[in-house]
């Protein structure tokens, strides 16, 4: 691995941290597109930054009486969700190919790398859920042969027949793309059902035992990972 000048390293860090102005950013992005060494350094620094950013997600200050039990449970659930996110993200960074924009390019596919992509969504925001569906559609349109969407935590609603704001679009996607697989996290479903609520999935949705296990298995088999 060729070593980079400190100035280049500082520039890449500044890019990652949103510290470059428009012109500086454009120049560096152009260099990233043309210089594989620089691109590799960018990916490695991005991984490092992301690992540090999530390493304390589960760190909770010691319990103090002012927090009622119900609130503590919610805080624990949020921490657990963050750990889950970190595992998925970590695995994606480690085992998936790295690009500047986080999306596999057609060039990579033509070089014989995997054309199998797993898209991961855990956000409750319907706009982000729709963006995930857009991403899936775009990947299919670009010719990726195997595309999967995995929803867990608050994003599960997207795949529920009783709660999805985009149930019609999900059904259309399933019927139009026989190779597309959409997975609902079994752990999330079990958690909801333990609270007395019945979960009805849209027809054609597959229940995975656990979103994280499913994602890690896919990554170990060379799939690309995208967090929507």
């Amino acid at each position: 691995m060729k070593s980079l000048s400190e100035l280049d390293e500082i520039s890449i860090n500044a890019l990652l941290d949103g510290e470059l102005d428009g012109d500086e950013r454009a120049i560096l992005l152009e260099r990233l597109a043309n210089e594989p060494e620089l691109r590799g350094a960018h990916s490695r620094l991005a991984i490092t930054r992301d690992l540090v950013a999530h390493a304390w997600d589960d760190a909770e200050p010691p319990y103090r009486e002012k927090y009622p039990p119900q609130r503590r449970r919610r805080r624990f659930a949020v921490a657990a969700a963050m750990i889950l996110l970190m595992v998925g993200f970590f695995a994606g960074r480690v085992m998936g190919p790295e690009t500047v924009v986080g999306v596999p390019s057609s060039a990579e596919t033509s070089q014989g790398q995997s054309d199998q992509v797993i898209v991961h969504i855990m956000d409750a925001d319907p706009a982000r859920q729709r963006a995930a569906l857009d991403r899936v559609e775009n990947l299919l349109a670009e010719g990726y042969h195997r595309v999967e969407l995995v929803a867990h935590s608050e994003a599960l609603d997207l795949l529920r027949s009783d709660r999805s704001a985009d149930a019609g679009r999900v059904r259309e996607l399933i019927s139009a793309h026989p190779d597309l697989r959409l997975f609902a996290c079994g752990n999330t479903i079990a958690r909801i059902e333990r609270q007395g609520e019945r979960v009805q999935l849209i027809e054609g949705i597959v229940r995975a035992s656990s979103a994280v296990d499913h994602i890690v298995d896919r990554l170990q088999n060379g799939w690309h990972y995208i967090k929507a």
């Binding site: 690992l51 540090v52 999530h54 390493a55 304390w56 997600d57 589960d58 750990i83 889950l84 970190m86 595992v87 970590f90 890690v216």
Partner: peptide, 12 residues
């Protein structure tokens, strides 16, 4: 390293 707690411990 498949265990998220171990990843955190490593990074920390």
């Amino acid at each position: 390293l498949r265990n998220s707690g171990q990843i955190s411990a490593l990074v920390r």
